[in-house]
């Protein structure tokens, strides 16, 4: 079973709650995916607390755990304050820590990320850092108190899928006992299966499901892909070979001439 900060989970898919055609479709997609964790955010309230209240009631009715994020924060202080406010509202020490370093690529500011992670971990937060696939940054995040890592595989919302399988493989090899979750860049179920086949512990995605033609059907497809990838990894995959190797026995062939 997946173990994230002591929480045992059956599903290895974490799902975002943004960009769906409607709240009802989001709720159906969450159910169809089988996920047990959804990500949420904090934003300025514009209508006296009513719109946020409705969203929060819907999420609570889904019976899943919430992982609040610090999406859109570009500085350590913004991210830390947002995390503290999220803990107050959502009543969880979990925080998906994002410190964005570039507007165009939305890639993490890994220096700020490490700094914010250290502050939050010292305050008892259980940090889910959205990071790159850089090995040294990963080591710094673990030093800072993170007990798991969430490397991207491509830019957020890009649907490009794994851009550097070797880097992901290297992280898996270096940190065999740290939960690794691919966060961001997954576009299709085969991408999710591919990273799960590398031995990744889980996948976090949003856009690929929310913006699909039929988000509910796509959520089910991703649920199966993540499970298939995990089962394949556990079953032991055949390594690629340069030459053909016959599968049908060559001994006992008839001689016709």
């Amino acid at each position: 079973m997946l173990d994230l900060y002591g929480q045992k989970l059956s599903s290895r898919l974490l799902l975002g709650t943004a960009l769906y055609p409607s709240p009802a479709v989001m709720a159906e997609a969450v159910k169809a995916s089988g996920t047990e964790i959804v990500t949420v955010s904090l934003r300025r309230e514009t209508s006296g607390g009513k719109s946020g209240g409705q969203f929060w009631s819907l999420v609570q009715s889904l019976g899943v755990r919430v992982l609040p994020n610090t999406a859109g924060c570009h500085s350590v202080s913004e991210a830390v304050t947002t995390a503290r406010m999220a803990r107050e509202v959502f009543g969880t020490n979990w925080i998906k820590l994002e410190v964005i370093g570039n507007h165009d690529t939305l890639q993490p500011d890994v220096f700020g990320l490490v700094e914010a992670a250290r502050i939050l971990a010292s305050e008892g937060f259980e940090v889910f850092p959205y990071t790159t696939d850089d090995l040294v940054v990963a080591e710094r995040l673990l030093d800072a108190g993170c007990k798991l890592l969430m490397p991207w595989c491509a830019p957020i919302g890009s649907a490009r899928g794994p851009q550097n399988l070797d880097a992901l493989r290297s992280l898996r090899g270096h940190f065999p006992d740290i939960p690794l979750i691919v966060d961001a860049g997954i576009g299709r179920p085969s991408h999710a299966a591919a990273v799960m086949e590398l031995g990744y512990d889980a996948v976090l995605l949003n856009t690929a499901i929310a913006k699909a033609g039929d988000p509910v059907a796509m959520a089910a497809a991703f649920g199966k892909a993540v499970e298939a990838g995990r089962e394949a990894y556990c079953a032991g995959l055949l390594e690629p070979r340069d030459m053909a190797v016959p599968s049908t026995p060559v001994i006992g062939m008839a001689a016709f001439s």
Binding site: G16, L19, T39, V40, E45, G49, W56
Partner: peptide, 10 residues
Amino acid sequence: IEILTPMKGG
């Protein structure tokens, strides 16, 4: 003063 509320997120 900032007043924030739960919102969808990825």
